[in-house]
Structure formats: structure tokens, C-alpha cells
């Protein structure tokens, strides 16, 4: 069967099953199990209404349990077992083996660098652009152009930036913008930038900053719009200059939004895989956790260490997870 036909059938069957399930389960509940008539009509209606939410929730939560909750537990179990020995429990051996690998330490260090640089730069640029475009007549056009990389895949962005970093042999014309500028302003021969350890990490980070700044800008721009006019006007009357207004009046009022943007980008950074995979594949000291893990799982076929690396990512995400849950609960109360 051709995949296109299969896809079409899947949509029909999937949507049909879903609608059918919700419709018939409600029907069965109301008409047969707890019919709203007879001597117990009132009690039946109450019972049916108590059960109905669970009917609505069941498919989604079953899928969530299987596709997100179970994997967390299963990964934890796998990270404590050894695949080669038939899945025997080995305690923390996988973690110990991982910590002894220079590539893992490198990935951990690089990830920390990413965590420091990318959320900070993206948020700062996003805030700056949001403020600058705030009252510009062509501001929405400018914003939509800066927001555009959000729609581009990490792989596409990698190709785009690889052209910027491209190097041609010395003496020929440089077609990568970075080397063209570099050879124009200095007398040095062109560099193959992606192979220059340490600095190449930043070249990869720029790609993610380029993508995520649009996200930060959109959220922060909405937050800036939400600041009550009176506070700004009062400051103007008191003679504050625009810089003061921005740092002393506006920023303090949108701190919570800045934190949200920062944490959201942090999570994206922890999961970053495609950019490194496509541009350097972790060579020249650019390894990161997600790519290290992929390497272990599918090239070295070492499920134990791979799962251990995944658990490290999970561990790093956990503080944000808890923070989000606490905040969300406060808001819903």
C-alpha cells in the first residue's frame, strides 16, 4: 500500500475511532449503565457525571502514560542494567563508565556553556528588539522577519549557517561571509571555523540564538505592551530618560516573563541535537549531551550508557519542571 494512501486511511481511521469512542462511550454511559430514568434517575445522573470526565480524559492520558511517563521509568531502569549481559542489574556502573569517558565530560562542559550563552543572548536580543520595535511604524514587519527563523528546521538552519562559515583554500575567493570578512580585514589565511576547538561551540550556538531570539522577542514584546501606561508616563513627568525608563520601570515589571522565556529556551538548549548533529556531529570538541546520547544508542548500540545520558538530561531539566509545576499550581488556585 502506498504510504500516502496509508496516511489518508490513518487520518480517517484515527479521527473516526476517536469520535466513535467519545460518542459511543457517552451514549453507553447515559443510556445503558446509568440511565437518567427509573427510580434511581437522580443518583444515576450524578454517577454518570462523575464518570464522564474520565471518559474524556482516558485516551489522551493513556497515550501520555505510555509515550512520556513510562519511558521515564523505563529509561531509569535501562540505565541501571547492562544490555550485553541480558539486562542484568549493574547499579551505577553505566554512570561510572560514562563519567570516565572524556567525550561525556566534554559534552557536559559544552552543554553548560550552551546553557550560559544561548538563553542569555536570545533573551537579551529578544528584549532589545522588542523594545526598539515597540512604537515603530514598520515594527511588526521587522518583528515578523526576525521571528521567521522559528519556522526553519534546525537542519535547514544548519545548512544556512554552514554556508556562512564555509572556507575556501587560501588565494581563492571566499564564498563564506565569515571568511570573506576575516580575509578582508586581516592578512591571515582563511580559517576552517567549525574545526577550531572551543570557538566552534559559539558558532553552533549562534544558530540557536538566531532561531530563538524571535521567540523571546514575541513573548517579551507582548509583555512590554502589557505594562500600564501610567507607570511610564509618571516616570517621564519625573524627568527619567528613555534608558532609565527601560531599565528601572519596564524591566522590573516584566521580570516574571523574562524568567519564563529564559527557562523555556533553557529547555530547548538541553535538548539541542539537530544543529550539532548536522554541523559537526560532535567532532572538534563540540559534543553535547543529546548528540552523545544518540551516538551511544544508535552507533555504539550501548543502551545502558545511552539511557544514563538521557537520565542526565532529565536530571538537568527537573529543577525547571518543578518550578513550572509550582508556578502553574499557584496560578490555578
Amino acid at each position: 500500500m502506498s504510504p500516502v494512501l496509508q496516511a489518508f486511511l490513518t487520518i480517517v481511521v484515527g479521527v473516526g475511532l476517536c469520535v466513535g469512542y467519545f460518542y459511543s462511550s457517552n451514549l453507553v454511559l447515559d443510556k445503558f449503565i446509568f440511565p437518567a430514568r427509573g427510580p434511581n434517575a437522580g443518583r444515576n445522573i450524578n454517577l454518570a457525571n462523575a464518570i464522564r470526565p474520565w471518559l474524556f480524559l482516558l485516551p489522551a492520558f493513556a497515550a501520555l502514560a505510555l509515550y512520556l511517563a513510562y519511558p521515564v521509568i523505563e529509561s531509569l531502569r535501562l540505565s541501571l542494567t547492562d544490555r550485553d549481559n541480558g539486562g542484568v542489574f549493574v547499579g551505577l556502573d553505566n554512570y561510572r563508565q560514562m563519567l570516565a569517558e572524556p567525550k561525556f565530560i566534554e559534552a557536559l562542559k559544552n552543554n553548560m556553556l550552551w546553557l550560559l550563552v544561548v538563553p542569555a543572548l536570545s533573551t537579551a536580543f529578544g528584549l532589545l528588539i522588542a523594545q526598539l520595535t515597540d512604537r515603530l511604524w514598520w515594527g511588526s514587519l521587522a518583528k515578523s522577519l526576525i521571528f521567521m527563523p522559528m519556522a526553519i528546521s534546525f537542519v535547514g538552519a544548519s545548512v544556512i549557517w554552514k554556508l556562512v562559515y564555509d572556507a575556501r583554500p587560501e588565494g581563492t575567493e571566499q564564498i563564506g561571509a565569515l571568511n570573506a570578512l576575516y580575509t578582508f580585514f586581516t592578512d591571515n589565511p582563511p580559517e576552517i571555523w567549525l574545526t577550531v576547538p572551543f570557538w566552534n561551540n559559539f558558532l553552533l550556538m549562534i544558530v540557536l540564538v538566531w532561531i530563538q531570539t524571535g521567540f523571546a522577542m514575541v513573548i517579551l514584546s507582548a509583555a512590554l505592551r502589557g505594562i500600564p501606561e501610567e507607570t511610564v508616563e509618571a516616570a517621564i513627568v519625573d524627568g527619567a530618560n528613555p534608558v532609565h525608563i527601560f531599565f528601572k520601570i519596564k524591566i522590573p515589571q516584566i521580570t516574571s516573563t523574562i524568567v519564563v522565556v529564559w527557562t523555556t529556551i533553557t529547555i530547548t538548549v538541553l535538548k539541542v541535537f539537530d544543529i550539532v548533529f548536522a554541523m559537526t556531529n560532535g567532532q572538534w570538541e563540540t559534543q553535547v549531551l543529546a548528540n552523545y546520547m544518540f551516538d551511544k544508542l544508535f552507533r555504539a548500540n550501548d543502551w545502558g550508557v545511552g539511557s544514563a545520558a538521557a537520565m542526565v538530561i532529565m536530571f538537568l531539566v527537573t529543577p525547571i519542571l518543578i518550578w513550572n509545576v509550582i508556578n502553574a499550581r499557584r496560578e490555578f488556585r
Partner: peptide, 24 residues
Amino acid sequence: GRAILVAVIVALLVVPLQLALIPL
């Protein structure tokens, strides 16, 4: 249990899908 389920959703929002690869 509604509040707890909402909290679960918020928590699952950030679970890295890297964890799900092998088990799934």
C-alpha cells in the same frame, strides 16, 4: 484530582523526548 492532572500536563511539557527513544 483535576488540579493534579493539570500539574502532570505542565510537568510532561518539559520531559525531554530523548528519554522516550529506546523504551518506545
